[in-house]
Simulated scan of single mutants.
Amino acid sequence: MEKRNGSSIRRRILGRRLRELRELAGYTLESAAPALDASVSRLSRIETGQQKADVHLVKSMLDLFDAGGDHWTELLALAREAGQRGWYRAYGLGDNSYVGYETEATQVLEYALGFVPGLLQVPDYSRALYDASPMRRTAAEREREVEVRTIRQRRLHSEDDPLRLAAILDDAALRNPVGGRETHCAQLAHLHTAAELPTVTLQVLPAGQGAHPALASGFMVLRFGDLGEPDMAYAEHALGATLLEKEPEVTLARLKFDQLRTLALAPVESRELIRRVAGEL
Rank of each mutant, 00 (worst) to 15 (best):
L36D: 03
G49D: 01
R12C: 00
E247K: 14
L43E: 10
P123W: 13
Y98Q: 10
R149W: 12
V200G: 06
V148W: 11
A172R: 11
A33D: 08
R16G: 12
D231A: 13
V99I: 14
L78N: 02
W72A: 10
N176D: 10
R10V: 01
R164F: 06
Q50T: 01
R17V: 09
E110Q: 04
A266N: 13
L24V: 01
G210R: 05
H212A: 03
G218K: 04
G118R: 05
L36S: 04
H190E: 09
G100C: 11
L57G: 06
A264P: 07
H184M: 08
E159V: 09
R154S: 14
S126R: 15
A32R: 10
A167I: 02
E2N: 11
A233S: 08
L21R: 04
Q51T: 05
A195H: 05
V277F: 11
K3L: 15
V108I: 14
M1S: 13
P177K: 06
L113G: 08
E272T: 15
H192L: 12
V250Q: 03
A128H: 04
K246G: 00
R89Q: 15
Y98R: 00
A167K: 00
D37L: 13
L18T: 04
T73V: 15
V277G: 07
E159T: 15
R164W: 05
M1R: 03
V122C: 03
A132V: 00
E249I: 00
G94Q: 01
D124G: 06
A25E: 02
L263H: 06
G15I: 00
T262K: 14
E141C: 02
F219T: 09
A238W: 08
A67H: 03
E269T: 05
S270D: 09
P177Y: 09
D160H: 04
F65I: 01
E247I: 13
P177V: 02
Y27W: 05
L197Q: 01
D63C: 02
P198I: 03
L260E: 06
L78R: 02
Q203V: 04
R42M: 12
R149H: 11
L64H: 01
D70S: 15
A264D: 12
F115Y: 14
I46Y: 05
